[in-house]
Amino acid sequence: MWKFLTASVFAAVGATASAQEVTFSMDATLNCLSTLSENQSPRSCISHSANACMEDTPGGWSTVGMGACLNKEYEYWDARLNTAYIHVRDMRRKTDKELADIGSSAPKQADALLAMQRAWIAYRDASCAYERSHWGGGTGGGPATLSCLVYLTAEQALYLEADSIVE
């Protein structure tokens, strides 16, 4: 089910952008996340790797270069979100089964999780379409959409990885 959910309209954006070779590593974002101070938002680390890629790639600050670098970080967070989702889903199914075994009629956690993730996908797509609308038909719309996807996807991945959701 999840695979169908993530096979989004943005696959087309990604396929075009990644045609360019870029110098990309997730180090900058991950190093930032691992050295966060208490009052610093994880959000402040998101897209550090895409920015480093734009610096390190010849022509990285062109529209095509930015799109390709952002797409690399998007692919990372999308994969990480998939992994996090499957992990939470398995945990929630286990809890649902345990509750059902003792005769509980509590609402199913796994069903609520799926509803949430579907709503999140609609929210992500509509929000990033709105972000694109700031650019009219301009070429900045591509990187703006991808940047939005990077931020929202990273935040949802980090949300699903939180202890309170998994345990």
Binding site: A106, P107, A112, L113, A115, M116, R118, A122, Y123, I165
Partner: peptide
């Protein structure tokens, strides 16, 4: 998204 996220947390 807010409604469904908080409904999930409620469970």
């Amino acid at each position: 998204y807010r409604a469904d996220t908080c409904a999930f947390e409620q469970t």
